[in-house]
Design a binder for these strands. Structure first.
Length: 508
RNA sequence: CGGGGUGUAGCGCAGCCUGGUUAGCGCGCCUGCUUCGGGAGCAGGAAGUCGGUGGUUCGAAUCCACUCACCCCGACCA
């Protein structure tokens, strides 16, 4: 009888979380797999979200004195070899350019011209520390050149073995900040400042709560002295590293020769940092807020804030309804939300109402506004919020609505953040023994493991031995939190004294 | 890269074991009529070199070999 299941997305989160994720991406038309192994095509709706992430972060970077620049996609192999840990970390997942010409093959088609082999292979950047370091070495000669605060919006490539749209793709888009400072203290401060910016942006713009913390030794960025992270909890209660900020000490400065003369006429190596977030944030957004009806977009990051859905049957109604809808669209666009004109779309496509409505639900537009003949007559509109049920609508006076819209959007933004925070709180547990840890991360039904576990807050010291024990349970220390409880205790794995509790979880 | 699985119309699948005339079904798409504050009904229509290459055979989506891609579970990772 054409009856649809209760939810727009099948399977539901509870039924099969991984498949649900893929279906949400598809239903919202955000991205799809490409003919190229491990690489995705980001479609307009997904890209618009990324653009909003870019715009918000870029403003914050500029406000803290950073400037954008662009460096080559290709890095000479010898550059990558300069920093020992760095080589080890990335060598396994590099795409390499070895030739510069194709010629016609003996059996047709094209083959790589063996005569066109490069003297030195070029690596498609997995990250740009070394190539940017080479520039920094040239740009910096005096303490007066410091600090040097540079950011690059770019694509990078890491030859991942298992990929998932937005969460892990062979090629991904990101920003990478690279800075050089005269003193260690300044560089450490910069590392923390950018971590704070990530926290602010991800929580306030994306409504995704994060835990700021320091990474353990094994999770540290290759070549870094210290790595900081913001960790978020997804709805399957796994942790997702949403952004990282690295204090690189003088490691890369020494590798690239970034030296300067200080006021005392001494030659010194600079102290550098690097920090980045990627299109993975789009994945974090999806997995934090979306429900079984599809994507739920926090207003500040949504490609469209409000969709107007005219309802009519005959031409006569169409004229009346469209006149009101167009006027309303204009009035809404004159309003501002989050410091910019409201993003409003009037959907006048020749589709049936239900289909249109569900289409926008799946795309996660914060507010849907229906305007039909009855509304025109009564001077009202039906308003539905994406953070509420699909059929939950409120009649609002058409005249008053534009004035109220910004407040409604702000309320949705706030509700989504509060909801995500409550979810994380509900699934964060203080754990005081190994047995408790095992129990917490063991599903009730091991044959069909449902969503279980969460963040375990436990005392656990940073040793390879402990790391191995956690790995048996498929767990990792996500971070050593910076804020919050610093009470010392006893390590649940080794029994030794521990400075503070850490976040233990399964991770993406 | 190890173990398992899948590639047939835009999407989801059947057919394959037991080779045999023009390769089906559901959704979607297009057209028409009827519907319409909700993911419609009826009728008609368009769309596929059955992942690729080679082999066996009178004949291959179907059997064999190789290969590529994707998915799930590991290992690796933003």
């Amino acid at each position: 009888m054409g009856k649809k299941s209760k939810s727009a997305i099948s399977p539901t989160r509870e039924e099969n979380y991984n498949e649900w994720y893929q279906q949400v991406v598809r239903a919202a038309d955000m991205a799809e797999n490409s003919p190229v192994r491990g690489c995705m095509v980001i479609k307009p709706w997904g890209y618009a979200i990324w653009e909003n992430i870019q715009a918000g972060l870029d403003r914050m970077f500029k406000a803290t004195g950073h400037r954008n620049a662009y460096f080559p996609l290709l890095i000479p192999k010898s550059f990558l070899e300069k920093e020992a840990d760095h080589v080890e970390g990335f060598a396994k997942e590099c795409a390499v350019v070895t030739h510069h010409r194709l010629v016609e093959g003996p059996e047709g088609g094209l083959i790589v011209d063996p005569k066109a082999e490069l003297e030195e292979p070029l690596i498609i950047r997995p990250t740009s520390e070394t190539i940017i370091g080479a520039s920094f070495a040239q740009w910096i000669s005096s303490y007066r050149d410091l600090p040097l605060l540079i950011n690059q919006w770019a694509n990078v490539m890491r030859w991942e073995l298992r990929t998932r749209l937005f969460l892990r793709t062979a090629e991904f888009l990101w920003q990478e900040g690279h800075t050089a400072h005269a003193t260690e203290a300044e560089a450490v401060e910069e590392t923390r400042r950018m971590l704070d910016i990530y926290e602010t942006f991800i929580e306030e713009h994306m409504a995704v709560p994060v835990i700021k913390g320091r990474k353990t030794e094994s999770e540290r960025f290759p070549g870094a002295v210290d790595t900081f992270t913001v960790e978020a909890m997804m709805q399957d209660r796994k942790a997702l590293q949403a952004g990282t900020s690295h204090f690189l000490g003088q490691n890369f400065a020494k590798a690239s020769g970034i030296k300067f003369q200080n006021a005392e006429e001494q030659e010194q190596y600079a102290w550098t940092t690097s920090w980045g977030v990627s299109t993975r944030l789009v994945g974090a957004l999806i997995m934090t807020h979306s429900d079984d009806d599809g994507l739920v977009c926090p207003p500040r990051i949504a490609p469209e804030h409000i969709v107007l859905l005219p309802i009519y049957r005959e031409d006569e109604q169409r004229v009346a309804v469209m006149a009101v809808a167009e006027k309303l669209a204009e009035a809404l666009r004159a309003q501002s939300y989050d410091g910019a004109p409201m993003r409003v779309i009037l959907d006048d496509r020749d589709l049936r109402g239900g289909e249109k409505n569900w289409g926008w639900i799946k795309k996660g537009v914060p507010l849907r506004v229906e305007i039909g003949p009855r509304d025109v007559e009564s001077g009202s509109v039906m308003v539905a919020r994406r953070d509420k049920g699909a059929r939950d609508k409120e009649s609002i006076s058409a005249e008053a609505f534009p004035e109220r819209a910004a407040a409604l959007l702000a309320d949705i933004q706030q509700t989504l953040f509060a909801r995500a925070k409550a979810y994380r709180k509900e699934h964060t547990k203080v754990v005081d023994s190994y047995e408790e840890l095992v129990t917490y991360f063991t599903p009730e039904n091991t044959k069909r493991p449902g969503i279980h576990g969460g963040f375990a807050m436990a005392h656990c010291c940073d040793t390879p031995d402990n790391e191995a024990k956690l790995k048996e349970l498929k767990l990792t220390v996500r971070c050593i939190p910076i804020d919050g409880d610093r009470t010392p205790g006893t390590c649940i794995l080794s029994g030794k004294p521990s400075e503070q509790r850490v976040v233990i979880a399964k991770a993406y």
